[in-house]
């Protein structure tokens, strides 16, 4: 067993309530979790389990009600460029073209500090190539399909090169084929061919169990109302992962295990 490095992010007894004290709705309760540097962590759970709330708190957009949330030992008190977020509804700037959206953080934020104009442009171009948006550079978001917008949001996140990537259902709006291709791309961007020390840290929210297993080192399963930690499932599938991984027996077994963890609540959620 190798020496475990200090966790990148630590959640200790995190609780999040919305609304006033008497009628407060508890979204997340007593959630404790260590996220290792270079780890790909997926969070799955039925709707209403507070997945997005957890992500917003990690991003610094929502304060925790109680408990602590630290990164590199320091409390997370607000948003920062080292934690890039890809939002579920993309949050693209409608007045910017594809290029303008992807380069926004580089042009106006700390991600572009110390980079020349040419370097910034090169990064944008690389991000565009990566997600397959070539030919759409000068289009505005309203001219793009849902899947294309999602690619722009992904490219914008990648172009900023944050140390930690927080992703909220980033591939949900894509068709099945594109989704598989981008899953492979995502693992490459994350650095699955590189040693752990050179990988970025990813917190990835998805409703797809198979996607979570294919991508992640560990899958956090939450229960709903309020969101609580149900189980952390280690995904010990070899890397690099590819189509063979998707077909393997252990992949199917893991998928079955996680599905059984959330099945009951997922059914109940559909009845609501």
């Amino acid at each position: 067993m190798t020496q475990q490095p200090a966790p990148k992010i630590t959640l200790a007894h995190v609780r999040k309530e919305f609304g006033g004290t008497p009628a407060a709705v508890v979204a997340v309760d007593s959630l404790s979790l260590d996220i290792q540097p270079g780890e790909f962590l997926a969070i799955v759970g039925p709707s209403g389990c507070g997945k997005t709330t957890v992500l917003n708190m990690l991003a610094g957009l929502e304060p925790v009600t109680s408990g602590t949330m630290t990164m590199d030992g320091k409390a997370i008190s607000g948003p920062g460029a080292e934690r890039g977020v890809m939002f579920q509804d993309y949050a693209l700037f409608p007045w910017k073209t594809v290029v303008g959206n992807i380069g926004f953080g580089l042009d106006h934020g700390p991600a572009g500090h110390g980079l020349s104009r040419a370097e910034r442009e090169a990064r944008v171009t690389r991000a565009i190539d990566l997600v397959g948006l070539k030919g759409s550079e000068t289009k505005y978001p309203h001219q793009l399909s849902g899947g294309m917008r999602q690619r722009v949001a992904l490219a914008r996140l990648v172009a900023n090169e944050p140390k930690i990537l927080l992703m909220d259902e980033p591939l949900a709006a894509l068709d099945a084929q594109t989704r598989i291709i981008l899953q492979d791309e995502l693992l490459r961007i994350w650095g699955q061919d590189k040693p752990t020390s050179e990988r970025r840290t990813v917190v990835y929210i998805t409703h797809s169990i198979d996607e979570a297993i294919f991508l992640a080192d560990r899958v956090v399963v939450l229960s709903s109302h309020p969101g609580r930690l149900k189980r952390i499932v280690d995904v010990d599938l070899a890397r690099p992962r590819n189509d063979e991984t998707r077909k393997s027996r252990s992949f199917a077994e893991l998928s079955q295990t996680i599905w059984e963890l959330i099945r009951e609540e997922a059914y109940r959620a559909t009845m609501r």
Binding site: A59, P79, G84, F87, A91, G109, A111
Partner: peptide, 12 residues
């Protein structure tokens, strides 16, 4: 959401 997106990019 647009303001949130910009803030997570560290926009001053």
């Amino acid at each position: 959401r647009l303001i949130s997106a910009a803030r997570t990019m560290g926009i001053p």
